[in-house]
Design a protein around this nucleic acid. Structure first.
Lengths: 116, 116
DNA sequence: CCCTTGAATCGGAAAAATACGATATACTGC
DNA sequence: GCAGTATATCGTATTTTTCCGATTCAAGGG
């Protein structure tokens, strides 16, 4: 993938987070983590039809993107969802698409040209 | 990538949209489309340091994910941002992470376990 | 100290994404 | 009809992702 020098820092961060979330297994992990307050990896392996090493890799990707934090090593290894990252992403979407995508902006939603 | 049969339709749709947005060039295209009301491909080629055929491919990916619509063929080929898709994605994020990620949920944001 | 258990990392195979140039297609204007 | 311009598609080389089994590492129990 080519680097685009004209990209803003926000755009790059958004792309990185989107990319990390752009996999069904990782979306599933995030929804599982959100459902509970914390999660050991082993439970996730039970939920997903993937090998333990693969789940571990997915967790690493999510962690590097800042979407999850952990694990705390020691007695209770645990991965946690980082709500700040999700909130940031939602905010980015709203900023970028504002005012056409903001909730309540339905009136302005129609495109200027006819849709195919 | 393995198909995960236990995945809900929403989770799959979210993953597909995230994946489509998970590329710097495509984020840039979306922000450009959001900035204007419509955009012919040519202008985007000028904005991005990529070949015309590559930009066309990116537009195709975004279109297949339902993020942009168009082009209307004829005199004024135009691609438009589909605000509904972005709104749906924001809503998905809020639903999944609710109540821990919803705006104003800062009090509940701290994870149950210590962060590394 | 050794053994079990759970998670991370390594090595590598297969599949998918990314990018480009070349080519095809569609529309405009002469 | 023909030329010119703009966009889409094809073929393909390269890179990246995805996944697994095997191995390593760390903690705890006997």
């Amino acid at each position: 993938m080519k680097t685009i020098e004209s990209l803003s820092a926000d755009e790059e961060r958004a792309a990185a987070i989107f990319r990390a979330l752009g996999n069904p297994a990782r979306v599933r992990i995030v929804t599982e983590l959100a459902r509970r307050d914390a999660c050991v990896t082993g439970e996730l392996v039970g939920v997903l039809p993937l090998a333990q090493s693969t789940v571990s890799q997915h967790l690493k990707v999510l962690k590097e993107a800042g979407i999850v934090s952990g694990p705390v090593d020691g007695a209770n290894p645990c991965y946690c969802l980082n709500p700040e990252a999700v909130r940031w992403l939602v905010e980015f979407c709203n900023q970028v698409c504002c005012p056409r995508c903001a909730p309540g902006a339905e009136a302005a939603a129609a495109c200027a040209c006819e849709q195919r």
